[in-house]
């Protein structure tokens, strides 16, 4: 039962990632694209966790943690760039 649920969930998260890519391409403004990227990395974390459950290993959690940290820093850096025109003042 878990296997079926896993496949359905992976399909849903992948579809969600595709919708994020749609928003990333369509825009229309820069903040929309940054928001799409922000959601995209959260979806990537979800996919990595699902992959870990499918393969029955815990190894991928470290990479999920790294993506979480880097993604947040990236979002803040891009938002700050949009607001001020520079990241480090």
């Amino acid at each position: 039962m878990i296997t079926i649920a896993l496949y359905i969930t992976i399909a849903m998260v992948t579809l969600a990632a595709l919708l994020n890519v749609y928003r990333l391409i369509k825009g229309p403004d820069a903040p929309d694209r940054v928001l799409a990227l922000d959601t995209l990395y959260i979806n990537a974390i979800a996919l990595i966790i699902l992959l870990g459950i499918t393969l029955g290993t815990r190894m991928y959690l470290e990479s999920a943690l790294l993506i979480a940290v880097m993604g947040f820093v990236g979002t803040v850096a891009m938002a700050k760039y949009l607001k001020r025109g520079s990241v480090i003042e």
Partner: peptide, 22 residues
């Protein structure tokens, strides 16, 4: 049951968030 339910719930919410974004 708990794992399957949580997985489906999580997937549904992720999808709904993306639909909202789109």
């Amino acid at each position: 049951y708990a794992i399957a339910f949580l997985l489906l719930l999580g997937g549904a919410f992720t999808l709904i968030g993306a639909i909202g974004l789109a």
